[in-house]
Amino acid sequence: MSIEPSPPPAWKTAPQGQTFYPSATIRCDGPAVFRSQFARDVACLLDVDDAITEWRCQPLPFSDGQEFYRPDFVAKVGNDIIVIDAATDDTPLWIEGAVRADGHQYEAVRRAELPLIRLKNAKDLLRYGNFQTGLEDRVRLLAALDEHGTLTLAECLSVFRETRPIAGMASMVLNRFIDIDLDEALIGPESTVRRRRG
């Protein structure tokens, strides 16, 4: 199942010229347009969610027969489509029923529910989302992980020759070549790095 594109209406987008940190996205298919920093933070978590293969901003319009509303995101998880909202007091109460009636799952994310450590790690990684790790560095690091099983982040940094070390590491995490824990603590020199399998 594909995620059908649709341009967001002007009233649902951020004011012209307004941007939200960080600017890079990894699995966003289409324009990255956010109506708030809260929505941008939710999108950061989508990019580091292993279950999500791609996502779009505000692509699906829904109606209760009187008004139209576009949720913040739609994400592809396997063969399923999940509609995701950065829910606020302005989110219409009817939207969940409308999404489910259309055959999709609906998830409302509240600001208080955001996993703060994971979010900070995701935003730190996405700061380097526009970098690409050089082939030589990528092969060298994967070979080292094959040999040792795991390495600390500090040990991995010494492998890089072509790419800025932190940028290279972040790119490899975001592009799912390697794994690093995002939930227990902020990424640091002692963080354990593993090769991604499967």
Rank of each mutant, 00 (worst) to 15 (best):
F160Y: 14
L135S: 14
A10R: 15
G30W: 07
F177G: 00
L114M: 12
R118E: 12
F34C: 07
D90Y: 01
R27P: 02
V83I: 12
E147I: 10
Q132S: 11
F20M: 03
A167N: 06
E184P: 00
H104T: 01
K76R: 15
S2N: 14
T91I: 03
N130P: 00
Q132I: 08
L126I: 09
W55L: 03
Q18P: 00
E113R: 08
R35Q: 10
R194S: 14
A167W: 05
A143R: 14
F34P: 06
P115I: 06
N79F: 00
E155I: 02
M172P: 10
A167V: 08
L153F: 11
D41C: 10
T88K: 05
W55R: 03
A101F: 01
R176W: 02
D50I: 03
M1C: 04
A32R: 07
I3P: 02
R138G: 13
E4L: 12
A98W: 03
H148E: 13
Y106F: 15
I180H: 03
A10F: 11
G198P: 00
P9H: 10
E54S: 14
T88I: 02
S23P: 15
L142A: 01
G134A: 13
W94E: 08
L116Y: 02
L174Y: 09
R195Y: 00
I166S: 04
A98F: 04
L46F: 10
T88N: 03
A24E: 08
S23H: 11
S191C: 11
D50F: 02
D137E: 03
Q37H: 12
P59R: 07
F38M: 04
G17Y: 09
A122C: 12
D124I: 07
I117D: 01
T163V: 07
D49G: 08
K120I: 09
Q18T: 15
L157E: 12
A167H: 10
F68I: 10
A112Y: 06
C44P: 12
S158C: 13
S2V: 11
R197H: 07
R40E: 06
L45H: 13
A167P: 04
V139E: 13
L145I: 03
G65Q: 07
C156Y: 01
F160P: 11
Q16A: 15
I95Q: 02
E96S: 11
R164T: 09
V48G: 06
T19P: 00
R176Y: 02
I26F: 05
E67Q: 15
D146I: 05
H104S: 01
E147N: 13
L153I: 01
G129C: 09
M1H: 08
L119Y: 06
C57M: 11
D146C: 06
G149H: 11
D146R: 14
L157Y: 02
P165Q: 04
